[in-house]
Design a protein around this nucleic acid. Sequence first.
DNA 1: GCCGCGCCGGAAAGCCCTTGCCTTGCCGGG
DNA 2: CCCGGCAAGGCAAGGGCTTTCCGGCGCGGC
Lengths: 338, 338
Amino acid sequence: MATLADVARRAGVSPATASRVINGSSKPVADELRERVLRAVADLRYVPNAHAQLLARPQRSVVGVIVHDVSDPYFAEVTRGLQQVATERGRLLIICNSYRDPDRELEYVELLRGQQVAAIVLAGSGYHDAGFTSRLNEKLAAYGATGGRVAVIGRHDHFGDAVMPANVTGGELIGGELLRLGHREIGVVAGPRVLTTVTDRLTGLRRALAGGGLTLPEERIRYADFDREGGARATADLLDAFPGLTAIVALNDSMAVSALALLRARGTRVPGEVSVLGFDDMPIAADVTPALTTVRLPLVDLGVRAMTLALGPAGGQPRVETLPAELVRRDSAGPAPA
Amino acid sequence: MATLADVARRAGVSPATASRVINGSSKPVADELRERVLRAVADLRYVPNAHAQLLARPQRSVVGVIVHDVSDPYFAEVTRGLQQVATERGRLLIICNSYRDPDRELEYVELLRGQQVAAIVLAGSGYHDAGFTSRLNEKLAAYGATGGRVAVIGRHDHFGDAVMPANVTGGELIGGELLRLGHREIGVVAGPRVLTTVTDRLTGLRRALAGGGLTLPEERIRYADFDREGGARATADLLDAFPGLTAIVALNDSMAVSALALLRARGTRVPGEVSVLGFDDMPIAADVTPALTTVRLPLVDLGVRAMTLALGPAGGQPRVETLPAELVRRDSAGPAPA
DNA sequence: GCCGCGCCGGAAAGCCCTTGCCTTGCCGGG
DNA sequence: CCCGGCAAGGCAAGGGCTTTCCGGCGCGGC
């Protein structure tokens, strides 16, 4: 790789001058020298070594993002929001997938710290695991103590600014809708119980149902991986155990979509015999048949807000923003059969 | 941030010794000193500055990835394959979204070069734009000349190793299926015509249809953005212009899914009145109703192979691998109505 | 004609880390 | 007893870049 020294030599100037030309320093440089430097840059295909620059400048510009999995539609949307703001402000993103492995999350925080990132955005559900949570917090705090900015999406009680989707409220919306439609035999297809997102959504759901005098026994909840395969399995289990169900609540849309597919395969009419309700309102929700009734979470906005907080001025207090959930009625939920 | 010097000072050793302990150098260090260093590291929450390390060591470890958009399911899958191999080999990925903007692609190549990445993987269709292509090649070659590895996915005629999905063959498979089912009134919902992926798929399709004595007039092809919105618009256009169509070929599954949704909204039976065929076999393809007949491209494998090439030994010759396409018959395509 | 000032360019000091090479101190063998 | 050899640790030289500070030159003013 050509170095600045090479450029300077070829242009017949000092490295200092070359640097000034290349970086558009405010210090004036005579036109002729500037010209020579630029030509040398082009000739040598010189690109500054970003690491050396980072070492020499105090200023940090890259932002680290830790998500469960970018290829999961939920995070794909959130990431789009993050990207959007980052790009606007000329920041490069390093995206890390934790694949829902807490240890990997911890490692990535270290790694990003080592990369001297300007901020870390941690997206995705927290875990019911006090040990992990405190270790993570400890690491984030260490990072924050040296000027790093932290923003989390959808995690309670963490160091740094936070953006929270209204998971509890969303659960309540689902519950309210079920009551309104007269369902009493309800099953839940849930993600891993260790995720706070899952328990939050359940909390809301239970609360709303309780308002209608219904309880949700634990055996009517099936916990599985938070994706299509998990959804298919959990739905099958649930249906086999409780043939009389009139409504299935899936705690995310991926699971809801596979529940729909399974019901269809079994020849069960939706929503005639069984209603299906999802959560998240992923893009696909509107395109499946029947179109999915679900709770919309402003996924892209979640990312936008989080990145905005992370790149904004460091507030004295950690800020918490909650983004609202909204019920989207489509075709997959109807009145309970008589 | 604590530096190595801080650690050394606190442990009462030289930076050299501290470095050796931290990096597990083969050089022996007495247990007591080692102990002191490790404690200092823990006390100070020291994390090595990755940039300084990179400067001091010759070895490069990060890999850069340029895709159109990670949140697009196609690239989400490809990226998953890339990640998988990268993680296995302990490589960090920098993922950049070009959003199908050629200029941004060019910029990202520069940027990644500046980051001293060990390899660059460029995923996603090329463009019919000779000027751009040669500029890109020039940049990639400059990078390759200084020891950088390059792998492209789905682009012809580019510097570096390549992994090609069988787009032409896939098009032929679709064409063959259409002939088999007796369709003669065919419309195509296509992505931007500037993408080589789009023209390749069309080429295959046309070739197969020609084998059955059919031609595909240009006005039966609607070019739009390669996503759901584009698909909806193009499908509507096509249907309005040619009410007699019995089959719609969408050149990717996102477009096919929205075509399905649109037909449903219009009350058209699929495949009774109109058949719909997709391309890519994204995860969602099996879950929509009716389940999508499509061409499976081994998306994850595309990523796996590309990353394997990029991280493997530098071959003298650029290597090109083609991964096969496969027709997946589901429920959205049936015999042409009589 | 001289001084001083402003403008421009360069020398060099870092930024933080790794590592080749040297020093020191100790042991054992001759 | 001396020396060679080895183990253990430190010195210092980079690696590529930015930026402060300084010096030289040319010009204008007195």
